[in-house]
Design a protein around this nucleic acid. Sequence first.
RNA 1: GUCCCCGUCGUCUAGAGGCCCAGGACGCUGGCCUUUCAAGCCGGUAACACGGGUUCGAAUCCCGUCGGGGACACCA
Length: 479
Amino acid sequence: MASAPRVRFAPSPTGYLHIGGARTALFNYLYARRQGGAFILRIEDTDQERSTPESVKAILDGLEWLGIDWDEGPGKEGAHGPYFQTQRMDLYRKYTEQLIAEGKAYRCYCTREEIDARRSAVEKQTGKPGTYKYEGTCRNRTDVPEGRTSVVRFRMPDGEGRVTFDDKVLGPITKEYSDLDDWVMVRADGIPLYNFGCVIDDYTMGITLVGRGQEHVNSTFPQLMLYQALGWQPPDFAHFPLILGPDREKLSKRKHPEADVMLHKRNGILPEALLNFVVRLGWSHGNEEVISRQQMVEWFDFDHVGTTSGVWNPDKLMWLNQQWMKLLPAPVVAERLAPFLQARGVELPPGDPRLERVVLAFRERAKTLDEMAATALKYFQHGVEWEEKAATKHLTADSRPLLARVREEVAALPQWTAPTLDEVVKRVSEQAGVGMGKVAQPVRVATTGGTVSPGIGETLELLGREETLHRLDAALARP
RNA sequence: GUCCCCGUCGUCUAGAGGCCCAGGACGCUGGCCUUUCAAGCCGGUAACACGGGUUCGAAUCCCGUCGGGGACACCA
C-alpha cells in the first residue's frame, strides 16, 4: 500500500437512509478506519426529478444517528470537493468534451421516443425485456441535425474483447464487449448519468476502492471501459452481498418498511444494536456475535465479507437490542429511554432518578426502548387498574390479612429500598407460615394490577412509598 | 429472455483438502434457578441443493443440473 486508502459512500438523496445503504456506508467506514484511510461522503444528486434537500438531510441524520462520520463531504469540505455532484458540472463537461474530441464518445441525436419505440419493438419481437441494445445509429454521424437535442454516448471498442476485474470479495469477474453497448453518459439536458459521474468523481476524488452493493456489479463494466478510455487507473472494487426482505427479495423502500433506518430508531432500537445486526449480515469474525463499534474497526476486513445475500431477521435484531440495553451503562440507556416515556405522556423532570431505576429493572424484560417505556408506564402513573383475572386469583379473602400486614410494616420502614422491602415480604410470609409467593403475588397484583413485574422489592421501590401505600390501600378497600 | 453473482441448520454464519459423521448465534424446545415474568445457566432440534469428476481423502477444487437473487433507463 503506497498511500492511505480513500473510500466513499455515494447515496442519491431520493428518500430516507436505506438499511442497505447504511451497511454499505458502514463497511466503507470500517475499512477506512481500520486502514487509517479516509471515508468520503458524496451526494449523487444528478437525478433532478427525485433528489430533494430533505432527503439529503434525512441521509445525514441517519448516518449521524448511527455514528458513521465522514472525513470529507457535506459540512466537511476537503481538498476534493465539492461533494454534491450537481456542483461538479464543470468537471463532467470537461471530460465529455475531451472524450468526444478523442472520438471515444459521440453525440447521439436519437430522441428518447425513438429509442423507446425501437426498444419496445425489439422486446415485443424477442419476447422479453433487456434484449434491446443501441444499434449505433448515430455512431458515425458527422452532421448536426437542426433543432434536435443530443445525448452523449460512450463508444464501445469495435471487435471482440472482454473486461475483467478482480473483485475484492467476489473474485475475478468478466464480461464480453458484445454484452455491452454504447451507453448514455450524458443526458440531453447536459446532466451526467450515474456511470459517467461516478467514474469522474471517484477518480478525481482519489478513491482507491469502491465498495458498494452487488446490484452494481454489472455497472462496473461500462465504468471500467470509461477508465480505460480516459487512460486512468481504475480503483479496486468490492461488491457486498444484498440484504433481502422476508420475501427474499432485495430490501426495498417500497415493499419493506424495515428498510428505513430511522424507523428502527422510532421503534426503540439502539444504534449500537442496529449496527451490530447489520454488520453481521454479510460479515463475520469467527463466532463473535455481540460486537462493539471499536471491535468492528479492529476486526473488519473484506476477506470475511460473504458472497451470499442475507435475509433480514427481526428476532435477532431484537435479541441484539436487548444485549445492548444490558451492556450499555444504565445512565446512557436512561437518557435514550426518556423520549419514549415522554411520548406516552410522562412528565420527566431533568435528571429524574426514576429513569435509571426503570432501566435497571426492565432491561432484562424488554427488547426495545419503546417496549420498556410501555411496560414501565404504570410506574409513573397515579393509581392502578386491576386485571380482573389477576385480582380474582390473588386479591382474595385469604390474602387480605397478609396484604394488610405488609402495608403496615412497609409504612413503618425507615429505608425505602428494594432489599428492605423484600425483607418485609419475607418476614410476613414466614410469620404466616406460607411461601413467599403467597405474599408477593397479592402485593404485586395490588400494586401493579397484574401478575408480572420485576422483583417485588424492586417494584415497590420504583413505585415509591407514597404511591405504594396508596395502591395497597386501594386494593384493601376493594369490595 | 440475456448477462452477472450466489447456493452449509427455518434465519445469520464458522469453515481457505484431512482438525467436520460439520462449530457458534437467533428462533423453537426440555430442564435448572425462582415471589411472578424475564434474564442467566445446562441440554435438545436442525444444514454441507443434486449429479458427475479430481484426490489416498472434498462442505472445501473442476464440470453439469437444479434453485435463488441481481442487472438489463436520457434512475442511482
